[in-house]
Every structure is written in C-alpha cells, then in structure tokens.
Design a protein around this nucleic acid. Structure first.
Lengths: 128, 128
DNA sequence: TTTTTTGTTATGTTATAACATAACATTTTT
DNA sequence: AAAAATGTTATGTTATAACATAACAAAAAA
C-alpha cells in the first residue's frame, strides 16, 4: 500500500471536516487547488471513492455531494436527514430499521447489499 | 390548464413504459428524437419533473435515472430495490416503515418531507 | 522489470440557466 | 360581436454549468 493516495485522502477529508455542510466534488476541488493548483477531478474522485469505501465519507446520492462522517467512520449504511433549507445533514444509525427494510424487500428474494436512505425536510431550527 | 405539456408527458411516459428498466433522461431524449428530431433536454426534464411530481414516474437518485411507476401512480414515497446485476427495479410501499423512519429522524425535531429509499443488491434470479 | 498507483488530458454524461417564442385566455376597443 | 391588444403559461432553443470517468502517461513500489 502506498502513502501517496493517503495524503490526498487526508487533505480531502480535512477540507470536508472544515465544512458545515456537504460539498460537491468540484467544491472540494476548488478548495484543494488553493494548496495544489494543478489537482484534477480524478484525484478528488479517487480520494472520495476510497474515503466512501471505508466509511469515513458519506455520499449523498440525492444531492450529488459528499460529507465527512460526523462520527469518524460508519461501518454500516447510515440514515441521513437533509434540511432543504439550511443544508445541514444529520446522521442516524439504526440497524433494526435496516433489518426491517431488508426483510420487506427480501420477501421477493432480493438480497440487499447497500441501503440508500436520505430523508429531505426541514431541521428543527429551520422549521420555526 | 393547458393540454400542450401533457402531450410531451404522454410520449415520455409511453417510452418509459416500453422499457424494462430505468432510463436516463438522455436515453429518453434519444428515443423521443426518432419521432421528434429537434427535441432538446429541457423538454424531457420538464416532462419528467411533471410526471415525477404527480407520482407517475419515479426518479432513482442513486442512478440518475427514471422509471415509470409500475402501478400507474404512487401517491407516497416508494421503496425501490435495484438489482445491480440486471438493472431490474422493484417498487414497494410501506407506510409503516416510512412512519418509523420519520419518527426516528423526528426525534431531533426534523420534519420529513420526502423519503429517498433505494436498496441496491441482487434480485432473486440474479442471485442464483 | 513488472505491477500498481498516481497524474494528466480529454471527454462523456447529467442538468439547468437564460432567453425567445408560441399558444391560448382575457380584456379592451371598435 | 369582431378585432386588436395584453397577459399568462408552456414550450423551444442555445448555451453552459455541474458531475463523473475513460484512457493513457509517468512515477513509484514490489
């Protein structure tokens, strides 16, 4: 295993952790270019793929964006609630709910591998 | 209310119903261009927005694709299982599970509006 | 040196902004 | 009432923004 990729991943992760909300790949790119002007999209996407793979970053499918896992790392699929007003995302883990979902879907013989659960709405403070 | 948009929507929907799996907007565009060569992306996206709005079409956020609702129309958010092997998508409706999800997320004061639930895996026949 | 990782260029894919026009409805004028 | 003007909404059109990856070159590690 090499160290080079890990450096990119660490920098990408650091940028994401400084952000209060999700970032698009190109937003990350822009920020990273302040330090490394020549960096290109594939570098970001590779870093994001690795970070997503190991659970340190969540991809928000319904936003085409990414965020650092607030708990450091999630081994399992997480349940994300996305405030459509302020952009804040909360993470929840609930393996029981995932189980129920799997068993509902499993009735037809389907074998679940990855759960995408993203709930859009308004967070507590934006509701008022 | 006009009739004009409804014609595009009907054609888009007809194309989607002829497909066994989800289609990207550009795949629909390509098909529609056989009849209407000059049609442009916004026309497709507008039709898809209207059809999604009224529940006749589901958007698959994790695929950036669309499919006709197999039951004609869903009033509520549906639970989609996507076979990563053959591309088949199954629809499920389970308002109880949606309730549980809402209440889990609602603990923090979050007010859910739209649920994106997409489960990736293998369908019964691809599993064997 | 062979393999693997990373960098680089180019391009593919998805989606929408911005503006122009068309279609039809409504009101006003004649 | 018929014709003209105006408003309103849908659609067409161009261009471009935004997201993502293929393909290959270069460098590093094994």
């Amino acid at each position: 295993m090499s160290m080079r990729g890990e450096k990119n991943q660490a920098e990408v992760l650091a940028i994401m952790r400084m952000s209060r909300g999700p970032l698009s790949a190109y937003e990350i790119l822009e920020k990273l270019r302040k330090a490394h002007p020549k960096i290109a999209p594939p570098t970001i996407y590779r870093a994001l793929a690795a970070l997503t793979e190991c659970g340190r970053v969540h991809r928000l499918e319904s936003l085409n964006a990414f965020m650092a896992c607030k708990r450091g790392r999630h081994q399992h699929d997480s349940i994300l609630s996305i405030c459509d007003d302020c952009g804040t995302v909360e993470e929840n883990v609930d393996s029981e709910l995932l189980e129920e979902l799997s068993s509902l879907i499993g009735k037809s013989g389907f074998k679940p591998k990855r759960h995408v659960i993203e709930v859009h709405g308004l967070c507590a403070s934006c509701r008022s």
